[in-house]
């Protein structure tokens, strides 16, 4: 009897089942640890050779075996910044339309279509950017911009490929992310807040801009951070339109390079061990950036939920 009891305690099916699912959960942590370990150990050769100088060196020359990440880091952040600049106002407009203006039938169908935009593979955006957007930019948009070449942002020749094209494509790609989260957050603003605003004699727009948007600002910030995370890591679309030239330039018309497109373009062609290691270290940098950004977004969301029980990101 005592034996049966103790056996039941140790090996009851309940415990086995819980233990098994627990082991699978543990494996998620182990897999993540493995990811970090592999990235660090595979980028060790470059780290030993260049140290922290890798992060600030502008030179990337596989022939001389000199590698520096700065032009790629710059390109990654610059294209994402351009994308955010365009995507934020558009996404807020969409969110305002969906949560404040649209009748119910339009709300769900427009929301569905915009979420569908997020489901299109990155490659298709790239193809469209390469064969449709690039000629349009080259012929109609960039020539007038290059007349403003006294501004550092518009120096250079209208190529159709470069920071502007990549930034525009990324903007289209992150609009669904930012707008759908912002919309969900705006939904959670209580109706009596809006009614209070209207009762004070506010116009409909003033209710939106002075009540709804300020009330959802931490959620919108979370949406922007997640959108930024998506833009920084985006690969195929950017690779096809960025122009693949590692340079440090402010001009929207210039071709550039991003971390992800460098990896996509050079990895299969790299036969030098050091170059592969340098590309993996680029990947490690991208990984660290995206972990920081996603952890930040997650913490924002936790904080927001604690205060308002609001929408999830």
């Amino acid at each position: 009897m005592a034996e049966r009891l103790s056996r039941k305690k140790i090996l009851s099916p309940e415990k086995i089942f819980m233990g098994m699912t627990g082991v699978f959960s543990l494996s998620v942590l182990l897999i993540s640890a493995l990811v970090v370990y592999e990235l660090f150990s595979a980028s060790e050769p470059t780290f030993q050779k260049f140290g922290l100088k890798f992060l600030v060196s502008k030179e990337w020359d596989p022939v001389q075996k000199v590698y520096g990440a700065l032009p790629f880091i710059w390109g990654t952040f610059y294209t994402s910044f351009i994308a955010l600049l365009i995507a934020l106002p558009v996404s807020l407009g969409i969110a305002i339309f969906l949560s404040e203006l649209a009748p119910a039938w339009l709300r769900s169908s427009v929301g569905f279509l915009i979420e569908l935009l997020a489901a299109i593979p990155s490659l298709i955006f790239g193809l469209w950017g390469l064969f449709v957007l690039s000629p349009i930019l080259q012929q109609y948009i960039e020539p007038p911009l290059s007349n403003l070449s006294w501004l550092p942002f518009f120096k250079g020749y209208p190529l159709g490929l470069g920071f502007l094209n990549a930034g525009l494509l990324l903007a289209v790609m992150i609009i669904p992310t930012i707008s759908s989260i912002s919309r969900d957050v705006m939904y959670t603003v209580p109706a009596n807040q809006r009614e209070g605003g209207l009762a004070l004699g506010m116009t409909r727009w003033e209710v939106v801009s002075k009540v709804v948007v300020p009330n959802s600002r931490s959620g919108i910030l979370g949406a922007v951070v997640l959108g930024l995370g998506r833009a920084l890591g985006e690969t195929m679309a950017v690779t096809m339109v960025i122009g693949n030239t590692p340079q440090f330039s402010l001009s929207l018309l210039d071709p550039g390079y991003t971390i992800s497109s460098a990896i996509a373009n050079q990895f299969t062609e790299a036969f030098d061990k050091l170059q592969i290691s340098a590309l993996i270290e680029l990947g490690l940098i991208l990984f660290v950036i995206s972990v920081i950004i996603n952890a930040f977004a997650k913490l924002l969301m936790l904080r927001m939920n604690r205060f308002s029980g609001g929408a999830r990101i």
Binding site: V28, L226, G233, I263, S290, A297
Partner: peptide, 25 residues
């Protein structure tokens, strides 16, 4: 909550980084 947090962060890892990990692994 650690597993939840880690898997949410893992969800934001760029696709190309997953490729590099599989390459190294």
């Amino acid at each position: 909550s650690t597993v939840r947090f880690v898997s949410d962060v893992l969800a934001g890892v760029p696709a190309i980084v997953a490729g590099i990990v599989a390459y190294a692994l």
